[in-house]
Design a protein around this nucleic acid. Structure first.
Lengths: 169, 169
DNA sequence: ATTGCAAGCTTGCATAAAGGAAGCTAACAT
DNA sequence: ATGTTAGCTTCCTTTATGCAAGCTTGCAAT
């Protein structure tokens, strides 16, 4: 079996793994969730090679998790990549992976958990999807991640570019 | 940057992606969670090449999510790979990915969600970690996945081989 | 006006990872 | 004796990744 076949199988986990199962894609989505939109931002933020980044961004657009849109930079038209509804919906996956990594990955060096704060109340949440204090669900619009090894400042999360239909193409 | 460096960075999501960010590892963990333990089971279940499987199982043992243990097959000693506590803890990641894949990946073909059932009550759960009906948390011991494209029969999940310390080595 | 520079790519080439097939070993089973 | 299975390893080919260079457009400085 070629692993490209996974993306078309009946198992939803297999299909997701077919999209995100490579070295860079999850990290690109992490950075997109944290607000990166431009080629240069992804490149310097990740240290990924140009050609690989170009390829991955294209695949993520094809997969429907990012959109490529022109935007004006002065008088010049540049491209940027904005997260779609499907991309926003990946947040629980990223948070679950971050939580796992905090507890289990390479714990020899001091690890610091990502905290998911609910911006309206400013309080961290246990779950990422629900604020027990406010008794409401948490969307990307009112969520932020605190990554203490970067800064104690909460980083607001990117919101969906368009209310995309759940269409993978 | 070489992506191997990710596994040692400060970001827990980056470290997790360094372990699971390849074509096969998440699928190996899916099958391990569903009870696969032997080389042959992984190989035929996934269609992965022998050398890659051998390499991945070794890395997963090194990462602390699987253990390699001898077991008796008749008079002969064979190896099997059992999931550890760190491996069991990956279940939320797998379930989040499966949920995402069901909604967003390649929805052209009919997709069927994985259902996570709480074995004591036999009822599906919304969350995977908590049974609202029984008002208890759900561990692998009393959870099962229903993958309707395979069978309506709930598949009980593998439980941890040892109560491993959260030690990645 | 020319030079330089940044963003966003593409192209070409070297290296690393993945895939496929064959081979190897130890214990059965025939 | 011959074949078979699980669990690997080795060899070779193909694909993916990494690195460097080049290209284009506009803007900014000289």
């Amino acid at each position: 079996m070629n692993s490209a076949d996974l993306a078309s199988g009946p198992c939803p986990l297999g299909r997701a793994a077919g999209i995100f199962g490579d070295r860079w894609t999850l990290l690109i989505m992490r950075n997109a969730t944290l607000g990166a939109t431009r080629f240069e931002q992804f490149r310097t933020g990740l240290g990924i090679a140009d050609n690989i980044l170009s390829n991955r961004l294209g695949k993520l657009v094809d997969a429907g998790v990012l959109t490529k849109e022109p935007y004006e930079d002065g008088n010049r038209i540049r491209s940027h990549y904005r997260i779609t509804q499907a991309g926003v919906a990946l947040r629980p996956v990223l948070e679950a992976l971050a939580a796992w990594g905090h507890t289990y990955a390479n714990p020899a060096e001091p690890t610091i958990a990502v905290r998911i704060v609910h911006l309206p109340c400013g309080l961290p949440t246990a779950d990422g999807s629900y604020c027990d204090v406010c008794d409401t669900g948490i969307t990307n619009e009112d969520a932020a991640w605190v990554m203490p090894w970067v800064s104690e400042e909460p980083i607001p999360l990117a919101t969906a570019a368009v209310t995309a239909a759940p269409d993978g193409n």
